[in-house]
């Protein structure tokens, strides 16, 4: 092999290897600093979304996978895949487009609450509030919690209801509650 071809091959291989490393780094949403890694822990909210494929994909699209792998702490209302299926045809596809990332981020952060809130905490607040309790969201708007029988119901400002179907999945950086619908800021 002529020297110039060999050199070219080596350089090309190095570039490809470097590119692969960069891609790998980009795919890993975990925080880079040791302090943030320690604070986030190993079993993060991000790592607990394997079965919530649509929410996880949306979070990644919005760049929020890094948030959910970070120190937090957050309480995340994760719509199950069937909850996304309740949306009108094409709605999720529209939000998942690259140029709708800002809107998608607004929708997802409406499902992320500051701090760690367990179901019992919501129950107590509902009782203290005479049947309802406001919940803060990272998006800025509020949600309303109430009870229907033993189930916790979370309502958005337009009145859309999401039932907590599985709650209190404690993670190293917060807690996950699964809900059966997507809530919308308005």
């Amino acid at each position: 092999m002529p020297l110039n071809k060999l050199t070219t091959s080596i350089v090309l291989a190095a570039i490809l290897a470097l590119g692969a490393c960069n891609d790998k780094a980009a795919d890993n949403p975990a925080p880079k600093s040791e302090a943030a890694k320690d604070a986030a822990g190993d079993a993060t909210i991000a790592s607990g979304l394997a079965d919530a494929t649509k929410f996880a994909a949306a979070a990644k699209q919005a760049g929020l996978d890094a948030t959910l792998a970070g120190p937090g702490p957050y309480t995340v209302l994760v719509p199950i895949d069937a909850g996304f299926d309740k949306l009108p045809a094409g709605a999720l596809d529209t939000l998942m487009k690259e140029d709708a990332r800002a809107e998608l981020t607004g929708v997802l952060t409406y499902h992320i609450l500051p701090g760690a809130i367990l179901a019992t905490d919501i129950d107590k607040a509902i009782q203290a509030g005479g049947g309802k309790a406001l919940l803060p969201t990272m998006a800025g708007g509020t949600l309303t919690a109430s009870k229907e029988g033993n189930a916790i119901i979370i309502s958005d400002s337009a009145g859309t209801k999401a039932r907590v179907v599985s709650g209190d999945e404690k993670k190293s950086n917060g807690v996950i509650h699964r809900v059966d619908a997507v809530l919308m800021p308005s």
């Binding site: 919005a62 890094a66 948030t67 607040a125 203290a128 406001l134 919940l135 990272m138």
Partner: peptide, 23 residues
């Protein structure tokens, strides 16, 4: 990516607790 979210809610000593934080 978004490394962290902040609310910027008006928490301050001497100020009322924002009503959404009853929980």
């Amino acid at each position: 990516g978004i490394a962290a979210l902040l609310t910027g809610d008006p928490f301050a000593v001497g100020q009322p607790l924002p009503s959404a934080y009853s929980v």
